[in-house]
Design a protein around this nucleic acid. Structure first.
Length: 209
DNA sequence: GAATCGATCAACT
DNA sequence: GTTGATCGATTCG
């Protein structure tokens, strides 16, 4: 296994989810390159997790990528939007980390064009991120982040001043893990979904440097 | 037909 | 600025 893949296994999924905050995610499409710092993630713990697509060992052709090697991309559609997970843990262990929000660093114009929005509304939610990146189908599903046009730069990281934790957004509260604290975000960063204006740090965006 | 890891717009403070 | 109802694509049972 490459060092790149090793990042996505050998430690708890929650820890990987926190380590992804501040990493730059980029997507090279035919229309151009867009990129942003990851500011919000959610951990999905697989077969025991009532909010996971693999709950109770559920395994279908649709979610097969979740069972793939660490660092695989899992693209899924919800209502009219595309979202994606970074698949973590070893092959056959269907855990994933949902990338929920980015702080744009490159390709602002392209994102604005795709979203018909400006500012934080470009990328402060998983479906919005998908649209800003230009995901319009599932063709990246099952590809490795290491070599796909959609990738995460693990060679550097901008450190959050502090990491916020909460329950996950939009999951069924009745499940056993409905309320589990598995959502992680850069505290006070304005691009985090549901971040209130009054809680936003408009100077440093919650970064430590 | 039920369920789903969401976004938008209208209505209100 | 914030809250709450409505729209809606696809897959699975």
């Amino acid at each position: 296994m490459s060092p790149y893949q090793a990042f996505f296994t050998n430690r708890p999924t929650e820890e990987i989810a926190k380590d992804l905050l501040g990493r730059e995610l980029s997507y090279q499409s035919s229309a151009g390159r867009v990129a942003g710092l990851i500011v919000e993630t959610e951990a999905y713990l697989g077969e025991q997790d009532s909010a996971s697509h693999a709950y109770n060992g559920r395994r279908t052709n649709y979610s097969e990528a979740l069972y793939g090697a660490p660092g695989t991309i899992y693209v899924y559609q919800i209502r009219a939007h595309y979202c994606f997970d970074a698949v973590v843990q070893d092959q056959e262990e269907p855990q994933g980390i949902l990338i929920r929000a980015l702080e744009p660093t490159e390709g602002l114009e392209l994102m604005e064009e795709r979203r018909h929005q400006v500012g934080v509304n470009l990328t402060n939610g998983p479906g919005k991120v998908g649209q800003a990146l230009g995901l319009v189908d599932r063709h990246l599903d099952g590809q490795p982040l290491e070599t796909a046009p959609l990738s995460i730069d693990l060679t550097k990281r901008r450190a959050p001043q502090s990491i916020g934790v909460s329950s996950r957004v939009g999951v069924n509260q009745r499940g056993s893990h409905g309320n589990a604290p598995l959502r992680f975000f850069v505290d006070h960063n304005p691009y985090v979904s549901k971040m209130l204006k009054r809680d936003s740090d408009l100077v440093n965006h919650g970064w430590g440097d």
